[in-house]
Structure formats: structure tokens, C-alpha cells
Write a protein that binds this DNA or RNA. Sequence first.
DNA 1: GTATATTACTTGACTAAAGCAAATATAATT
DNA 2: AATTATATTTGCTTTAGTCAAGTAATATAC
Lengths: 151, 151
Amino acid sequence: MTKANNVIMNEEEIIHKIRKFNRSYVRSIGLLEKKLLNSDYSLTESQILYLVNDQKKTTATEINKILKLDEGYLSRIIKKLISKSLLTKEQSFSDKRIFEIRLTEKGLKEQQKLDTLSSDSIRSIIAHLNKSDQSELANLFNRIMTLLYKK
Amino acid sequence: MTKANNVIMNEEEIIHKIRKFNRSYVRSIGLLEKKLLNSDYSLTESQILYLVNDQKKTTATEINKILKLDEGYLSRIIKKLISKSLLTKEQSFSDKRIFEIRLTEKGLKEQQKLDTLSSDSIRSIIAHLNKSDQSELANLFNRIMTLLYKK
DNA sequence: GTATATTACTTGACTAAAGCAAATATAATT
DNA sequence: AATTATATTTGCTTTAGTCAAGTAATATAC
């Protein structure tokens, strides 16, 4: 794996570099997402479809542990996606407060379509790099994930 | 600098890793921003203040080359920030279509406050890492910037 | 040099996104 | 059995963002 060089930076410099990255990267990803979701689904809707697909069976509360939306707002979005026949909602037998949410066939197709669009948009931002640089990039992202989130 | 290892991945895997990063990282940064801007300024407003400070003197058009907002919306936000005495707007002498935008003293103070909050929020996500890992992290972000944007 | 097009910005009217608080239903706790 | 907590929904409001038309100044084309 990528080996760290051991030049210790001061905290200010570290934070500055991260923030600089955030400004460029988060902005460019944001613009890409906006463009590519144009215009069938909102970003939030597509995130919900992604999560439901990822978890196969889920609930509003589960989704909201990740997305942290307003509960009423989430409830309405789910309702909307059900009305478009992308999701189903079924009351749990063992706990009737809970409603299990799943993708329909149509929902799965739509989510796969969104997935492809999202992959395409990433492809476009790495297209100018050769294979070796692209692989390095993936390793860099991966290493950041490890540092930030695996503990 | 960080040395690439030369294992070439296939494109699918590369894109998968980048998207995985995006989901975690962009989401966590988004949540942080939301929390910390609570609640004096919107994210867009604070971005505008950041840009005006960065560029010292700018225009709506310049800002929008970066933020790509609706022009009418931007116009209104600027108006709002002027009404809060954070910005000034002055018609250019050489081209009277153009209005030069600057931070006021108060605007500068507010932007510095936001800047501090933003730095604090980054500090909080790297706090669990030792100095060496923090430096590595900054280098990783920096290297990504180079790969993606410098060409 | 005047008509036409373009640029920079603004305004009005609107839709979409998101937040807040109260309400309903069920389950868990005391 | 009464109280508290969880999961979701609804009504109402605010904030964010879009669209199209409009004004003013400048640049370009004939």
C-alpha cells in the first residue's frame, strides 16, 4: 500500500490543505450530481433509492440514521416514491410501528439507471488520466477512507 | 512525495472506490457544514463571503463562474448581504454594467468567524489521528488535487 | 453612426426543498 | 394500568432555487 512520508506538518497547514480539497472537490462533485440527476429525481431521492437498494429491506428510521433528514420530509419523499411505484411500504408484523421499505422492479431499474449516470460522471472526471494515475487516485481515496473512518 | 504503487485496477473498481469515498466523505462534510453554519448564514451565503474575501474585489459574474447559481438568486443573496452590511457594491467606472463587490469590515469579521468554524469542524474529523497520520492525510488530499485538477 | 446582439445585473412570479410542531399508533417501561 | 419512548404522518411555514422578462450599458455588424 501507499507509504506515508513522514514530514510532520503543523495543524494549520493540514487543515488548510483539507479545506482546499473540500472546496474544489465537494463543489465539483456537487455540480456533477446536479447536472446528471437532471431532472427526474432530486439528489435526496436518489440517495434514498441508493440506500434502499443497498440494504434491500429498510425503514425510514434506518435511512435517516444515514441521511439525517427531517422526519416529516423523509416521510413525504417516501410517499412520493411509492406513488411513482418505485418503492413499496409494508407494515412489519412483529412491530406495527415499523414499515418495511423495498424497491419495486421499476425502482430497481431506476436506481440502476441513476447508478450508471453516477459512474459515468466519475468516469468523466478521471478520463484525462492514464490508467496508472487512475489507479493511484483510487488508492489515495481508499487510504483516506481508512484513515478517516476505519477505527 | 507519496509514491504510487503500480497495481493497475480496472476502471469499474476505480470508479467504485471513488464513489464509495464520495458517499462517505461528501455526506460527512455536508453534515458538518450544515451543523456549523447553524444558523446565521446559508452554505451559499458563506461560500459567497469566502469568495469575496478570497478575491478582495469581485463581481456577481465572477462569483457565478465558480458557484454556478441562478443569476437572479445570486443577485438577491448579494442584496441581502449588502442589507446586512456585510458587502458593498459599487458601479465600475470603466464599465457601468459591472458592479464591484467587496467585504465591509463587518463582513470580513463574519467571514473570519465562519472560517474559524469551518477549520474547527475539520479539526474535529481528524482529531482521532496522530500527527503523522494527519500529515499523511493532508498529503493524500493534496496529491488528489494534483491529479484531478492540475494539468 | 445607428441597428442588433451581447453582457451584467435585477425583478416578479413561481416551484421545490426543507424545517417545525403537533398528532397518531404501537411498543416498552415503571 | 399509566407513562414514556419509538416510528411515522400531517398541516403549516420558511428557505432555497428556478424561469422568464426587463433594464441598462457595451460591443459588434452593417
